[in-house]
Amino acid sequence: MPIDRRRLLLGSPFLLSGCVTRPAPELSGQSPAGRLDTFDADYASIYAAVDGEPFPVPAIDLSEIEPEFLRREVGYRTAERPGTVVVDPGERYAYLVGEGGRAIRYGIGVGKEEGFNFRGAATIARKAQWPRWTPTQDMIRREPQRYGRYAGGLAGGAGNPLGPRALYLHRDGRDTLYRLHGTVEPWTIGGMVSSGCIRLLNQDIMDLYRRVPVGSRVVVLGSSGNPAV
């Protein structure tokens, strides 16, 4: 029997036992070509404002997001075990692998340049709600006037570029400095936009956050679509 999409995307257990960039696009009174002309009731609910948080999580303006980057259940064949997160930077998707060749697919934004992106397998070593953001030394060296003032870090909150949740990836016991996190710029999902981390819509990173425990495996594919070791 097919899984009910709304129940799945809104929070079923799913068959399982760097970071500031560009201005918003200018939008006319009509939706841009290829985007949602009318709001699907399910997606309006999925991407509604989130209550009960210490800081606001506003609703997503669906007219700013290409429909293919909205969360959905899809067929996905992989050798990875259920519970693994597979990130495909080339396709701009992250997949939470489920049973029976299915996955939850999330649209993502990736690094501005190929060299910014981590590749290979890692482990979620830490999860944080409303995380503190500190630019890396490389970011400060590249753009000192932009990032130097944040060298001491920026507390979590509505203006923090990591958004409401972050997943911290480690490999061989060491921090890769690579995160999956939210964003204050939802219109950038689907683009090459970040300083190397993977960004998701805030409602999507909150959904993924509650589905994956610490210790979960994450695989970031190479440009060929295959794992890079």
Score class of each variant (00 low, 15 high):
55 F>K: 01
129 Q>S: 10
52 G>V: 08
75 G>T: 14
127 K>W: 01
51 D>F: 07
168 Y>H: 13
102 R>H: 06
82 P>L: 09
173 G>T: 13
152 G>Q: 10
35 R>Y: 08
111 G>Q: 04
70 L>P: 06
115 G>T: 04
79 A>E: 14
151 A>F: 00
155 A>L: 12
20 V>T: 04
97 V>Y: 05
15 L>K: 15
169 L>M: 08
118 F>Y: 15
138 D>G: 12
65 I>V: 11
56 P>I: 03
1 M>W: 12
120 G>V: 14
111 G>P: 02
218 V>R: 11
39 F>S: 12
31 S>C: 04
31 S>H: 02
66 E>W: 13
18 G>S: 15
5 R>V: 13
112 K>E: 09
131 P>A: 03
53 E>K: 07
172 D>Q: 05
44 A>H: 09
200 L>H: 05
227 P>S: 06
149 R>V: 10
197 C>T: 01
16 L>W: 10
8 L>K: 15
162 L>E: 00
107 G>V: 04
196 G>D: 05
88 D>A: 02
62 L>D: 02
47 Y>D: 05
93 Y>E: 02
138 D>M: 11
29 G>D: 14
169 L>C: 04
97 V>A: 03
18 G>R: 14
195 S>T: 01
99 E>M: 14
131 P>W: 00
67 P>N: 12
56 P>W: 02
12 S>M: 13
98 G>E: 15
24 A>P: 07
61 D>S: 11
24 A>E: 07
56 P>E: 03
28 S>M: 06
95 Y>R: 03
183 T>H: 00
87 V>C: 04
29 G>A: 13
94 A>L: 11
97 V>W: 04
22 R>T: 04
100 G>Q: 12
82 P>Y: 08
21 T>D: 04
38 T>C: 13
203 Q>R: 13
3 I>D: 05
162 L>G: 00
212 V>E: 10
48 A>E: 11
142 R>H: 09
141 R>L: 05
198 I>Q: 02
51 D>R: 12
114 E>C: 02
163 G>Q: 07
209 Y>C: 04
78 T>R: 02
15 L>F: 13
175 D>H: 14
20 V>C: 06
211 R>D: 06
179 R>M: 03
68 E>T: 09
165 R>V: 01
137 Q>H: 08
12 S>H: 13
204 D>V: 00
115 G>I: 03
68 E>I: 10
69 F>I: 03
211 R>P: 08
227 P>C: 05
174 R>C: 09
79 A>L: 13
80 E>Y: 12
60 I>D: 00
160 N>P: 14
78 T>Y: 02
194 S>K: 02
165 R>G: 01
149 R>T: 01
128 A>D: 06
217 R>F: 09
158 A>Y: 10
66 E>R: 15
90 G>Q: 09
228 A>L: 14
28 S>F: 01
